[in-house]
Design a protein around this nucleic acid. Sequence first.
DNA 1: GTGAAAGCGCTAACAG
DNA 2: CTGTTAGCGCTTTCAC
Lengths: 343, 343
Amino acid sequence: MAKRPNKVTIVDVATEAGVSFGTVSRVLNQDAHVKSETRQRVLETIHRLGYVANHQARSLASGVSKVVGVLVPDLGTGYIGEIMRGIDVELGISGHDLVLYTTHRAAAKEANYVANLAQSMVDGLLIVLPRKPADYTGTLTERKFPFVLIDHQGTGEDCAAVGATNWQGAYSATEYLIKLGHQRIGFITGSLDLGAALDRLDGYKSALRTYHLAVDPQLIYEGTFNQPDGYTGAGCLLELEQPPTAIFASNDMMAMAAMDAARDRGYHVPQDISILGFDDIPQASLVRPALTTVRQPLEQMGRVATQMLLEIIGGARSKTSRIELPTELIQRNSTAAPKDRTG
Amino acid sequence: MAKRPNKVTIVDVATEAGVSFGTVSRVLNQDAHVKSETRQRVLETIHRLGYVANHQARSLASGVSKVVGVLVPDLGTGYIGEIMRGIDVELGISGHDLVLYTTHRAAAKEANYVANLAQSMVDGLLIVLPRKPADYTGTLTERKFPFVLIDHQGTGEDCAAVGATNWQGAYSATEYLIKLGHQRIGFITGSLDLGAALDRLDGYKSALRTYHLAVDPQLIYEGTFNQPDGYTGAGCLLELEQPPTAIFASNDMMAMAAMDAARDRGYHVPQDISILGFDDIPQASLVRPALTTVRQPLEQMGRVATQMLLEIIGGARSKTSRIELPTELIQRNSTAAPKDRTG
DNA sequence: GTGAAAGCGCTAACAG
DNA sequence: CTGTTAGCGCTTTCAC
């Protein structure tokens, strides 16, 4: 209703330049079949009139919106911010706009809400950290709608995804702790309905086995990736008759909370207890002592996922594939050799 | 080009339901003039066919896109995340979608890039933390395009904006430090081209004057809101012959870096030196000692700004106005009375 | 090379 | 109450 005033259309440009509006369209779309003289004149007119192509009209006519939807659980964490940065960079290069959906919003609507909005608005979807991927992947795959999952270990689904080497990262970190001399290493898991959480747990267990250390169920606390679990979990672990000398939390938020829990019980980190995290969110280097952690290449994950999505949209890549980016152990000051080795 | 297959249009629904597609449109738009019996039938058909309205077509025909653009400098900081959360909530309620633009991207293009994209895509714009507001406000105001500035103290511009009581917050915090017994209070400013930074500096100075303390230029270090300035600034301040017993940084990032600087020089916080920040970003409560700071109601700022924008878009509010939300001093553990009062 | 014409899927004004 | 009609601004054949 509220039509914007002073809008210049393709017709205005055509009239001014003395050509048909079809020609203007050709110029706009880099069509080669335009005399360069004509092209110049049109370009000049466009500039002079301050013409801006109407996105909606263009999408409607062409069937391509040049918009990508990004579905995220939340924006509060630096974690998502890093991924978003990578997405933004790639989208900027390819000239796509980015519409942001929050899972929270999506959850409020019917199950195929995502599929619906996708259908009516964007060319493809980037889904960050999906808790219940099945909610999306079904309809989306069925409708052959382009999408890529970020940081999710599919448990069987057959769709494009990018993640990190969670198993490897957890294995290396545990190995590092073991080599430091730790024999009893506590572990705080993430939400075990998430593949990433499972893989990290497996990596931890495998490392223990490799070094012939027992996998003690008492030393494994089941968390949910949320900060409070780190505090509670570390608390439980430290109350044990034989408390661990190191605690490996499945993400940095929980690790930081674990540090608090240890401190509140009079432990000094890392002298009395080593704490190790996962993710390397920006805060990890800020806390004291700075957190030793497994870095996920979050920004890169965003970039790679976006590139994949763009290829799928362009029809260049149809194969469902999963890419795993390498993790890296970042040694800082929250880990050290245990005090005594009476493990 | 790549037309999506299996798309159900309003015409399909109409045919199936045995009505004209105009009637379907009425049902879609909650038009009262439809027999409830017909409405039911149409609704049922829509559901059965899995019809989804095409966003672009609707926007094109109606001139309203139900999309709001949000322009942010970055996503890495929890700061923006909080504001975004507020925006998202309100937009969710009003049924608008949100397209995200990064200042970084915008800066790469011509000056009126923002105005252009606005014109062709969204109903309104929310601009978070604009460094050079003039770049946007000019064209936007001229074209009567709805927009609201978030967390920016206009220096003369006459446009809708929401911010916080920066002066008041800085005044109260300084007063708190004085009452604790501090006489020499260092101050690290933000970018002084920003109104918010200026207001905080003024609040600090005013509080000193109120309590008849000298405003010593040596104690004021000019920063830019970026983390490194906190470290450098605190370093300079502490090297002074008569170093301050407290340092008030214009945001939390700098305050946290100031804590590091103090620690690296052998100071204990808060015993030897008090540190105070501004913003209350999520990390503030996480660092050790937890940071005493001035809380800005970031999420609420996002909500209020969105409400304003929606009103402007709806034509309900045309008056340019600025809303200031109250700040609040959050006492934590980085501040204490000075050791001795030989100020 | 360029113009003309047919839609894209929908809203909105106008008939009836 | 409902059908019809004319666009919204642009892409894309198809002629010439």
